[in-house]
Design a protein around this nucleic acid. Structure first.
Lengths: 167, 167
DNA sequence: GGTGACTTACTCGGATATGGAGTGTCCGAGTTAGTGCGG
DNA sequence: CCGCACTAACTCGGACACTCCATATCCGAGTAAGTCACC
């Protein structure tokens, strides 16, 4: 079990969008190809990842020249959980296959025997909820604010350099 | 991202071992093939899963006739986290690839710039720790005790039936 | 009857195939900035 | 000078290969119970 590489990509791209976009309501869109160059990522695959964020309503995509993606809402209202869920999909970490109802172990069980949820699934679900709660407690804005001013300036400068060179 | 099917298998097998073993210090070992029959699982693959639990020190395997596996220590001292870690491996859920240090985004960064851990990785790690804490808070004994007495009796009876028929 | 080694069947353990999801790539549809012509 | 249509390039979006891990399987090494002969 390992989270997709795309999660890290998506979060760093969101942070970059916050930093280069400033506090404006509708900043300049940033092309996904430029974001890929920022982090030396596969441009086409990053595009796929950002598509998921767009479909989830976290990003807004702008077509045509000078197009790209921008945050769909204020970074304070985008949680890390939102990003992870958009990239990884809605499936829970632990998928209970209800093996307790199969095989010899279940022989002789009454019809209402398995009405209550599986204890194993419950334990896993509790842990998963704690994970989700912690992810939901942190917003993209929090992460963006935690970075050092020097890093933010450097990212902004490098982004501007790329914008000037390639369009 | 999804937990391995083997996690559910391993936990249910541990519960079964608790129930059929009783409170004895060294109960009768249960062959993995019988556990597979209990839950209608692939015997050989379940064997592989139980091997990991054995290597992790959670189970003790006994070779030869009337052999099998049994809990290596009291169920109160086996946490759900132990089982998950044994099956899934020691790798963290989120593997930070440090993409922040690559590409145009890092151009012009000083040598000590990335000494502090990545904020994205920190957020993911916090959530992961919450997940692990919750898993560690529950023991196999807790799960075993939470089941209804009827279920436990049924599992014991079915296990005894299998033991009589094939072993 | 007791003891010993042997046979034997049963167990675990690791090396070996297969499938599916994540990863990576490509090309087409759509859109908008820019441009040039005509009024 | 203004407006319009055209061009063109640039973007996103979904359809197509590749790789690695989880899944599933097989066969061999090892072991302890049961057995049989022998003392």
């Amino acid at each position: 079990m390992r989270t997709s590489e795309g999660v890290e990509w998506a979060l760093h791209c969101c942070l970059t969008l916050v930093w280069v976009g400033g506090a404006e309501a509708a900043p300049e869109p940033v092309p996904s190809a430029r974001l890929a160059a920022m982090f030396e990522l596969s441009p086409t695959y990053l595009n796929k990842v950002l598509q998921r964020l767009t479909r989830a309503g976290l990003l807004t995509s702008v077509s045509g020249p000078r197009g790209g993606v921008r945050l769909a809402r204020a970074p304070e209202r985008i949680t890390v959980m939102d990003v992870v869920a958009a990239v990884e999909g809605p499936d829970p970490l632990f998928a209970c296959a209800e093996i307790r109802q199969r095989g010899a172990s279940a022989v002789g069980a009454g019809p209402r025997e398995f009405a209550r949820p599986c204890g194993v699934a419950g334990a896993m679900r509790r842990a998963e909820l704690a994970w989700r709660r912690e992810l939901s407690a942190q917003t993209v804005a929090d992460l963006a604010a935690a970075a050092s001013a020097a890093s933010v300036s450097r990212v902004r400068a490098n982004h501007a350099r790329l914008a000037g060179r390639s369009g």
